[in-house]
Amino acid sequence: MVDYLALYEKMHDNNIMLTFKGEVSFDLVNSILKIIEDRLEKIEEDLKTKRKVYNILVECLQNLCNHLDDSVIEDEGIITGKTALLLIETDMAAYRLVTGNYIPNEKIEGLKSRLDEINSVSKEELRELYKRILDNGQYGSKGNAGLGFIDIARKSGQKLQYSFQPVNDKFSFFSFQIDVPKQGNE
């Protein structure tokens, strides 16, 4: 049998608040949000940090959910549908949110250039970009406005970390990580 105690202790030591791998639905997202909100209520005293983490988590998860909808595909045994990875951990300095999901290779370039653009601009430019898209941008059928990543960057004050790992000629695995510094530590 696998050493589940070792697994448990490893997760505990790394201050993992939540890990999930599986099919992501809006109901699941809502349950996760509730769990993390209750947890933050207990462990995080700083209102600003609490709000930032929750807000950024909402954006990460809804972003994930909306984009998984576009690409339910099974190919050579790899299900790239609504299955994703989610990891939430915390240490003394920050909360870390990580999502991972398969994306079609043809979508990499567009996504990468958006993330790079957000990472390349200053705080003030980011704010102007946000306002411009808010006022002029088109929105999707659910109201997703393409503001999610900008909002995540603004609220965290951090660069968006990401990688695309090739899986086969059709798909890659997109990992996204954002650190939310604990405000009291600044």
Binding site: N55, E59, Q62, D135, Y139, A145, L147
Partner: peptide, 13 residues
């Protein structure tokens, strides 16, 4: 507001 997501931000506007 306590929280609002980016998809609401358009609607609030």
């Amino acid at each position: 507001f306590e929280y609002f997501n980016t998809s609401s931000s358009k609607c609030i506007l």
